[in-house]
Design a binder for these strands. Structure first.
Lengths: 287, 287
DNA sequence: CGCATCCATAACCAACGGTTATACCAACAG
DNA sequence: CTGTTGGTATAACCGTTGGTTATGGATGCG
């Protein structure tokens, strides 16, 4: 009985969410599609993986046997695929970045890295915000500069902690104040990260600091897009203090939001990735 | 990048055969189908697995990284799938048999096993010769009585060594002789096991004892089929001495073939299967 | 009861995985 | 040089699969 690895991912996600609907949302497929896939998998396996209860699913005994196997298979494949891709560019370390980091972080890091491992080359990769792991998840990056929070599959080391500011169109009524308490922004329409960004989207909408759900006026997958939309008056957006200087433009003003917890910029890597080059790069970032 | 486990089997088989054509034959698909699948896999992976040479293929560096991973993934899945199936029938041991064993082997074995593990039940499963592992390979059996040779994935213990005989239609010119040297059978049409039986098919055609290829008149997947075909005069067939009594019928005669190496009947199990129940059954077969 | 939640089915469509037939290419024999 | 052999890739075709939206149906709850 051969399965598609996609089916195993479906199985694992559904077991973790314990409802088809929630798992389907997480997997970005429709609920019927997932339902059908699981049924088909069970039919081909010859036994049920889940028991259907009125409120969600539970694993059958066979399902609980197969769940760790599915996890193991997927982990082995993901690791192996990343390894194979790395084999194409031996002695090359790919550094992913969600947004131009600035702050004079990566330049000295790359220099120190080159000094430690002379045979190696470093390539920088700019990734949109639709992938909050900046390529770590799909193996297209080896290390990455990311904003927290990030999935627990990755290890991180915080580099910088910065207050969050808000970007407003110059003509906005709040633009006159020297600083803006978040309370005044509760009902403002926001420019948000795409849904694929997961918890990171919530962080930059500051959902933890809200009594209700945010108003999302638009989505954007890159910093320029966001600021374009803000300048146009479509919505407003939070950003890190260090980025306010980076993205200055006419028609746009940035103000601190003093009562929000700060943002954390970190360097991240795959928890299972123990290569010397990765370790060396980490040491180079913060010597 | 998610792959189908079938694609990984295709990849492994092709790497082992090192030509698409040979691998396609082994996998029982057409050569273009396999070629297309491999191409599609490479396209989705983003790198080539093979280098195409005028005479067959060799692995690229990425292919050689991915090959052991693919093997590992497939092994993990096959093992897990078998475990999950076993979870449906806890405390049940499935004994596969290629053909009714007779020889008073399995009856006392089952009795002794029941005595050692009282909580367990034993179920006997009769499997056609199209699966020379009698269900071990696909996990539908836990232990099996099989004729050697068998794939090295399985451990075996030889139980009985028996001379090979030949089954002939009663009117056959050689039927008058008390014994038949194999040399006289070289040009006779044979009833063979199906191609899926692999090396076992060759063994019962005695290809090792031939200067050229055998003449195959028909294929059969069960003992009765074979003897039916032999009685009808379609072809002749080799069989183990102990089976000559089992399958006596009018119009059929069996004669020893003294110059062939004997056949070996063994009990087999999955090399990786260390369960107590399996060990207990093995001890019960030959105390 | 009426409503919300969640799974399954139906109907439909694009993409996939297989088939056979055939083109193509490199090596080799005559 | 040319025909043959041994191999891979492409073309055309077709049933199945995997996805979509719309809808039905069961269950628990205010």
């Amino acid at each position: 009985m051969d399965a598609h690895l996609r089916e195993l991912r479906y199985f694992v996600a559904t077991a973790e969410e314990s409802t088809v609907t929630a798992a389907a949302a997480r997997l970005f497929v429709s609920q019927p599609a997932l339902s059908k896939q699981l049924r088909a998998l069970e039919r081909r396996l010859g036994f049920d993986l889940f028991e259907r209860l009125p409120r969600g699913l539970t694993l059958t005994s066979q399902g609980s046997v197969l769940l760790p196997v599915a996890r193991e298979v997927l982990a082995a494949w993901d690791r192996g695929y990343a390894e194979a891709r790395a084999a194409a560019h031996p002695n090359q370390l790919v550094v992913g970045m969600q947004t131009a980091v600035g702050r004079d972080l990566q330049r000295p890091a790359v220099e120190r890295f080159r000094a430690t491992l002379p045979g190696w080359t470093v390539s920088l990769r700019l990734v949109g915000w639709d992938d909050p792991t900046a390529g770590l998840a799909d193996g297209t990056s080896d290390v990455a500069f990311v904003w927290l929070p990030i999935s627990a599959d990755f290890a991180t080391r915080v580099l910088i902690t910065e207050p969050r500011w808000v970007a407003l169109p110059a003509h906005h009524p709040l633009a006159d104040r020297p600083s803006v308490p978040f309370e005044l922004l509760l009902d403002e329409p926001f420019v948000a990260l795409p849904a694929t960004a997961g918890p990171l989207r919530d962080f930059w909408l500051a959902v933890d600091a809200r009594p209700g759900p945010p108003v999302v006026a638009a989505e954007a997958t890159a910093a320029d897009e966001v600021l374009e939309l803000v300048t146009a008056g479509v919505g407003i957006a939070l950003l890190a203090e260090g980025n306010t200087g980076l993205y200055q433009r006419p028609g746009l003003v940035c103000r601190p939001v003093p009562d929000l917890p700060p943002a954390e910029l970190a360097v991240a890597w795959r928890r299972t990735d123990n290569r010397d080059a990765v370790r060396a790069f980490l040491d180079s970032v913060q010597p």
